[in-house]
Design a protein around this nucleic acid. Structure first.
Lengths: 141, 141
DNA sequence: GTACGTGCAAAGGTTTTGCATGGCG
DNA sequence: CGCCATGCAAAACCTTTGCACGTAC
């Protein structure tokens, strides 16, 4: 589901402005987990007058439209990922390393739960926390 | 894995003080997703002099020890859940309803990934976001 | 042309920190 | 008894809001 975010925004009746375009460019070109500040900095690259308030407002908008979702990793900063059906990662609680997973093994589970509770599932997040090989060795030394 | 948090704290070499005991009591008696403020309020019930700073410090400590993990739900407030192997819920992005799931269907997946990447998995979070039956009807009306 | 978006700056919250005091081990 | 942990208050930081102006449609 690689539908352009800009199309979605327009479809929902929102205007496609330069600041929003800049933020969308950032999101589409950075698969990482971006914080508000990172989005602001990167967005200024495309649209120098971009303000922090606009980043907050736009991210809230995108979250409401279910195009983006917030998450926490090992630190206390709110970050966002694109909602593309699902998102899966391993997080090392010691060094903060993040390994992204492509596979989605919960398709069946999702369907079963959706049916049981009458939910329409838009996205899901599977986050595994633990220690990576390097950190484990450090700890055991 | 219902090991007492207080045991774990001591085992890790930290002092078991009255404020910490109060916070632990709150965590153990509230299975919900608690924010810092909720923990502070509830904790004052057990230890009236409890300060906000101590809540922050203690939660950071517990997070570091992997006894607790932060997460975001539909709003932007950081909340915590006990790490007890895994945590699974459905979140309605429209009304904020949360349905907790008991089952853990990813045991196999977790093991496979752990092996492939050399990770030792301590906990996992499966979060499904969508709309509950009520909200879906509202939207379609 | 009009209503929606924006930047700016200020207000409102939240989180962190420094420091003197208190209490666990 | 020493050192870690705490409360308090201030500082630092993050997020939201009001408002006058600009711009997409």
């Amino acid at each position: 589901m690689r539908i352009e975010l800009s199309e979605r925004l327009k479809a929902a009746g929102y205007k496609l402005t330069a600041p929003r375009r800049a933020i969308i460019k950032v999101l589409e070109s950075h698969p990482e987990h971006l914080s508000h500040s990172q989005i602001l900095e990167a967005g200024k690259h495309f649209y120098p007058r971009l303000s922090r308030a606009t980043v907050y407002r736009t991210m809230e908008l995108l979250t409401g439209l279910n195009l983006v979702r917030p998450l926490y990793l090992s630190d206390a900063t709110q970050r966002f990922v694109l909602v593309e059906g699902g998102h899966h990662h391993l997080v090392c609680t010691r060094c903060g390393t993040i390994i992204e997973l492509d596979e989605c093994a919960e398709g069946e589970l999702v369907n079963r739960l959706a049916e049981r509770y009458g939910f329409t599932i838009h996205s899901h997040l599977l986050e595994l926390q633990g220690q990576c090989a390097d950190c484990r060795c450090e700890t055991e030394k």
